[in-house]
Write a protein that binds this DNA or RNA. Structure first.
Lengths: 238, 238
DNA sequence: TCATTTAACTTGTAATTACAAGTAAAAAAT
DNA sequence: ATTTTTTACTTGTAATTACAAGTTAAATGA
């Protein structure tokens, strides 16, 4: 079974423009080519172009202004609440490092998992991994991830050091995040969490439990994330 | 200047369906009338109906399935991260009470405000209020709100006890939330916060700083929210 | 009876046309 | 020179048509 037969035109243009925005071809505040120009450039009609732009706007990559145009709005932002916004200065990706605590391994799901699982998920077991992410060599996230072992061949062999989990899923398996839900709490740091995040025991830590939906029906990503919010806040747009 | 001259058809249908979903006319899991049926019912063409449904889907009220239909998906959810999801049982609105700590009053903006303000906002001053919201008589939120004093006549005279701030803005001033941003941290409770949320000093507390955008350009709602996440988590979808 | 095929739905994609409404810069008038 | 008007753009709204693709249940076959 092939993953995608034909890509719709509006999707194709969406991906082109999104990539251009992320790669900096169009920068924050820039005006995108007008709808009619895009029609000519990519040989589509306006409704098709508008569908692409509409999706881009919904995803927060651009803002549309009647009579003016589409303005790039590529704020610091990932899925839901993810990005880290430093209170002192803006943070580029260059200072972000990832340390693997537990390499990806196949195992059964924990007995009392934080989310309810489908039978299919339960049967197939999960890919488990633990990572700590550092910003300027300060540990910010302690990340425990669970993915159902569904249609992800050889994933435990991939290199997770530099690339993000999302990027790997996207590049190798064409898995895209389409939405999700999360629960957030403030909890006192346990000894283990305190050690990993270089905080004292009982220091306030942000705890997120997340379930991410993908374009692959039935495939979800689960993660339990502990955040050191001493210096940085969790930033989110909606 | 009137707030709205003519409402587009797709917007009108969107509002109708959204209201029906929220009022329970269409319940969770229900199948909405098909696009062609909606065309007939409301005298529109399919592109117009599809635009309404597309917006509803983007806002999370429905999910569309090719060949099947649009399924209502009105999960517990407000704007961004707001809803409270009890770990023990689902929480209805009936147990939610609001206690006013500081009644709405007009005052200048704080000197070192958490977000940067426009000149217009700075000149007009802000409407300030403090509230504590209780769930089953347990204080959950300590909410400090700031709104620019722009086109909101007599707002300080309104009753804020039962109704939410959002509801008042919507009903009386036609102000709708269109998006926003927020920063989240885990912090130790101060003495004041501990007192209001019935927690010991230094107990972990969730702190959210939020800026909400509205359909009224230039009008933003700001709030600083402290949450007791002992028994309840903050739940969010995206 | 059971499995397969067909038909009748559903939403998805896409081109075409027309006009409305907002924006900004050029042109004209003062 | 400054203000006003016009013009040429931009996106927004909306109807129309056609076919593709996924879903479901009825009809048909063995």
């Amino acid at each position: 079974m092939s993953l995608q037969k034909t890509i719709p035109q509006h999707r194709r243009l969406y991906e082109i423009l999104r990539k251009h925005i992320q790669d900096g071809v169009y920068k924050e505040g820039d005006l995108l080519p007008s709808e009619n120009e895009l029609c000519q450039l990519y040989g589509m009609t306006r409704p098709t172009v508008r569908q692409s732009l509409s999706t881009l706007a919904n995803d927060g990559y651009i803002r549309k202004h009647q009579g003016k145009g589409s303005i790039v709005h590529n704020l610091q932002r990932e899925i839901g609440i993810l990005s880290v916004s430093g209170t002192t200065s803006a943070v580029g990706d260059r200072n972000l490092k990832t340390k693997i605590i537990v390499k990806p391994l196949l195992m059964p799901w924990p007995a009392d998992f934080m989310f309810t699982l489908t039978d299919l998920e339960n049967e197939s077991g999960c890919i488990y991994m633990e990572r700590v992410r550092l910003l300027d060599d300060v540990p910010i996230f302690y990340d425990i991830s669970f993915i159902a072992n569904l249609n992800l061949p050889r994933i435990t062999a991939r290199q997770f050091e530099d690339r993000s989990l999302f990027q790997i899923l996207r590049d190798y398996y064409r898995v895209e995040i389409t939405g999700g839900e999360q629960r957030i709490k403030a909890i006192p740091a346990t000894v283990k969490i305190g050690k990993l995040l270089q905080l004292k025991k009982n220091h306030p830590v942000l705890h997120m439990e997340r379930k991410l939906e993908t374009n692959n029906p039935g495939l979800f990503l689960y993660s339990s994330i502990y955040c050191n919010t001493e210096k940085y806040s969790i930033f989110g747009r909606f």
